[in-house]
Structures are given as C-alpha cells and as structure tokens.
Amino acid sequence: MSIGNSPEDERPFEGDREDALPSIGRALQQARIAAGLTVDDVSNATRVRNAIVHAIEADDFASCGGDVYARGHIRTLAKAVHLDPEPLLARFSAERGGRPAPTPAAPLFEAERIRPERRGPNWTAAMVAAIVAVVGFVGFTAFKGGDDSGARDQVAEGSTPTSSTSASATPKKDSEPADTEPAPSDSAIAAAPQDKVTVQVSAPDGRSWISAKDHNGRLLFDGLLKQGESKTFQDSAKINLVLGDAGAIQLYVNGKKIEDDFRPGAVERLTYTKGDPQVG
C-alpha cells in the first residue's frame, strides 16, 4: 500500500479480467503504482487536485469540466506516471464519439490555473514620483530666486559681501584666503553693509553639516562643510542656521567673531539679524 492512498485505491476493479484491456483510469492507476507514486505525489507534480486524480482513475471525467479539459488531464497524468498518453487519448476520443467540440472555460479547471497574486500599492513608483516633484520644486525655487535681482544678495562662497554687488560678482582678493585663514580680513569686516546681516561659517578644525535659510525660509545652502572651507551668507533681515557639529564651526556675524563655546557634536539652531552678534 502506497502512502497517501487508501487500500481501496490500490484494489483492482471488480470484474477486471487479465486478458481485457484496462480502462483509461485503470491504466493510469496501474502506471502510477508501478512508478511507486501516490496520488499526492502526482497531484503535487501536475497541480491537478487529488479529487480529480481519484475521479479520473475511477474513469469519472465529469469533474474535469468538459472533454477538452479531460483530455488535458489525461495527457498530464500520463506523462507524470511515465505512460504514453496518445493511446489513452485515442481511446478517450473513440469512447466519446470522436474529437469533442471546444468547451468554454469552466471554473472547475482551477487545478491547472495559477491564480494571480494580489498586488499591493506600488510604493517604489510613488516614492520616485515624490522625489521628482521635490527636485522640480527646489529647482524652480532656486531659478525664481536667482531672477530676483534687487530683493536680496546672497554672497557666494569666498566672496566679500558688499552692498553694490550681487552673488555673481567677481570675488575680491581680501576674502579668497578664507580656506586657509577662517577669520575675515579687516577690509571684509569694514565692507559688511549696515543694512544687511552677513554671516560667515568656517570649519577650521573639522567638518560639519550645515543648513542656511534667509528670512523668507528660502534655502541658501544645505550640505557638508569640509575642514578648511567656509561659506558666507547675506540677507536683508535674518539668517537662520542649523549646525550639525557646532563644535567644529567658527562664526563671524556682521564682521565680528561669535565667542560661544559650542560643544563638539552638538546640534545648534541659530538666528542672526542686523543688530547682532548675539545668538538668536
């Protein structure tokens, strides 16, 4: 007795004679037993349900859903038990009066049909769309801000802040040594306009992530300030700073050094106006 089958499954049909040609179902059952396979083995290999395998081996093809599907099951099961399917199919056609007419798809044929998996929301596409939208918005904001020629002057890195030049003006020689000498020169201090706030951020002894915004909240800079580098920001009213490692940063506001003793690794949020230096 094979595992997965009841004794009745392996018992010969009553009335079978040794000299009689076995039926289609009996031939499939005998080939399965000779191959040492159980109904469960055949079902797992062919994806045909156990109930349908049992029914076909009993020559009951009603559960197949039609002659077309029955022929497909016979072919599939015959190959699984190493049996030539063509004689069985010819016999099936002869018993059914020739080749059957096409049969419409029936829900009973679910055994050989792989059901589609339910798909969840496409979070990857949504994330990509969100990133593209953010990048587009930032680019549009930067472009629009660059066209505003008289509202605010943002001082480019290493340039000397003046009241008559824009961020695209040629840097003066007085402020070029900022990478090697964090402190601004006397001329840079004297040139700081009185009607604006000018903030110079330097990293003489380390590096730190910094973020700078003007009084309207427009982002002036957001990134890593490496050791020896400096950035200068200017606005008509206020500069908002976020320092990722305040202990590595040296500040000059309106030409004057900020003497606050920032701890290494401390995150500081600072605001400076035209009347400073003092921490906002």
Rank of each mutant, 00 (worst) to 15 (best):
M1S: 12
M1I: 07
P7W: 09
E10L: 08
R11G: 00
E14Q: 09
G15K: 09
D16K: 07
R17C: 04
A20M: 04
P22V: 10
I24T: 11
G25R: 07
R26T: 13
R26F: 00
Q29C: 12
A34C: 02
A35K: 10
T38S: 15
T38L: 00
D41T: 08
A45V: 05
A45L: 10
A45T: 09
R49M: 02
A51T: 13
H54P: 00
I56C: 02
F61N: 02
F61C: 05
A62P: 00
D67M: 07
A70Q: 03
A70E: 02
R71P: 01
I74V: 15
A80H: 02
P85S: 13
R91N: 11
S93C: 14
A94W: 03
A94M: 07
E95C: 02
R99F: 01
R99P: 00
A101Y: 01
F109M: 14
A111E: 13
I114Q: 14
I114S: 09
E117F: 06
R118Y: 13
G120H: 09
W123H: 10
M127P: 00
M127K: 11
V128L: 14
V135C: 03
F143G: 07
G145Q: 11
G146K: 10
D147Y: 05
D147C: 02
G150N: 12
A156C: 10
E157V: 14
G158R: 13
S159E: 06
S159K: 04
S164T: 15
A167V: 07
P171G: 11
P171Y: 10
K172R: 13
E176F: 15
E176N: 07
P177C: 08
D179R: 13
P182I: 10
D186F: 01
D186H: 00
D186S: 14
S187T: 15
S187N: 11
A192P: 00
Q200N: 00
A203R: 07
D205C: 00
G206F: 02
R207A: 11
S208R: 04
W209V: 09
I210D: 06
D214W: 10
H215W: 08
G217A: 08
R218V: 12
L219H: 04
L220S: 03
D222E: 09
L225G: 03
K226T: 06
E229L: 06
E229Q: 15
K231Q: 14
Q234I: 01
D235P: 01
S236N: 13
K238V: 11
L243D: 01
G244K: 08
Y252V: 10
Y252F: 15
V253E: 06
V253I: 15
K256Q: 15
K256M: 07
F262Q: 01
G265E: 04
V267M: 12
K274A: 14
Q278R: 15
V279L: 14
